[in-house]
């Protein structure tokens, strides 16, 4: 059963189209990254499924049902900024959140421990640093131990220790079988934490699927020869690569990371009586993959 299904979701802000008909679904038990550069529509998408933004067109389902208030109570959501009453303490703020979520107050202490805020639990929210506010927002998501968490840029504004702790926490929650939907503009973060990903670009879905399939690191071997036809024919006998692409007068062979061997490629074609006039190994970085996907 999918936790979230989005169908042709569109959201316009006046003339600006923030989402241009996005569809995908989030299976239960995965860590689902929504990846995209700033302004790609990630937060808008999460805003729509949290019912704080009204979609222009399209629909979404939560737990395979028409969305209702009780669904949101089962989802711990942290959207964009930590939103709390500035004049209240962490405990007072979480008491309000717990009451709205219709959860007991007994795990307030526990979630504050989890995010290392127990010592400052009675200080007013307005006295917190940005990182502490962020951690309180994550604590609020954990109230009542919901099965689904929606986190929008959860490590934004945290120091390196905080970032590492938060990522560890997300992994730990995932191991407990929770479904986590996480928006991020950091490819590295998605790669480290997520099992599935949807990539957004200017309000459009570029691709979606498993992280290891989409963000696979590959070696690319480029070859060229005077007779491209013969080169292509011969390439069918070449082993070890996972896919092949033709771009203009050269062929690109994609190999799993670290398995391409130029000598072998060169020898293979030479034995087929083809003399290469171009042979190059390209290492593909995650960043270039990201640019390729989003540009």
């Amino acid at each position: 059963m999918p936790v979230l299904t989005i169908e042709s979701l569109r959201k316009d802000y006046g003339r600006i189209q923030a989402l241009k008909g996005v569809s995908f679904s989030v299976p239960k038990g995965c860590v689902f990254g929504i990846l995209g550069p700033n302004g790609s529509g990630k937060t808008t998408l999460l805003g729509v499924i949290s019912d704080i933004l009204k979609p222009t067109a399209g629909s979404y389902k939560l737990f395979d049902e028409e969305p209702a208030d009780h669904h949101r109570r089962q989802i711990g959501t942290f959207l964009e900024t930590p939103n709390f009453y500035h004049y209240l303490s962490a405990v007072q703020n979480l008491t309000i959140s717990a009451a709205i979520k219709q959860r007991g107050e007994d795990d307030i202490e526990k979630v504050l421990e989890t995010v290392n805020l127990a010592q400052r639990k009675n200080s007013r929210f307005s006295t917190y640093s940005l990182g502490m506010k962020q951690r309180l927002a994550i604590a609020s998501c954990l109230l009542g131990s919901p099965d689904v968490l929606v986190l929008d840029e959860p490590t934004n504004g945290l120091d390196p220790v905080g970032i590492a702790e938060t990522r560890e926490l997300i992994k730990k929650l995932a191991q407990q079988g929770k479904t986590i939907i996480m928006a991020s503009h950091l490819l590295d973060e998605v790669e480290k934490v997520c099992t599935h990903v949807a990539i957004l670009k200017k309000g459009e879905l570029v691709t979606t699927g498993k992280v290891d399939e989409i963000l696979a690191n590959e070696d690319i071997v480029e070859v060229g020869a005077a007779d491209l036809g013969r080169l292509q024919q011969a390439a069918r006998q070449l082993h070890g690569y996972s896919s092949m692409k033709q771009s203009e007068s050269i062929l690109q062979f994609y190999y799993p990371l670290g398995t391409a061997n130029l000598e072998n490629v060169n020898r293979f074609f030479f034995e087929q009586n083809i003399v290469l006039n171009h042979l190059q190994l390209k290492k593909k970085s995650l960043e270039s993959k990201f640019f390729e996907l989003t540009n």
Binding site: S50, D51, D69, R72, H86
Partner: peptide, 21 residues
């Protein structure tokens, strides 16, 4: 206006209130 400036109007809805609530 406190709700708007603290953006808790959003958080109340996110946490499970309906807009009508």
């Amino acid at each position: 206006t406190n709700e708007f400036s603290f953006r808790t109007h959003r958080q109340n809805i996110i946490d499970g209130w309906s807009r009508k609530n």
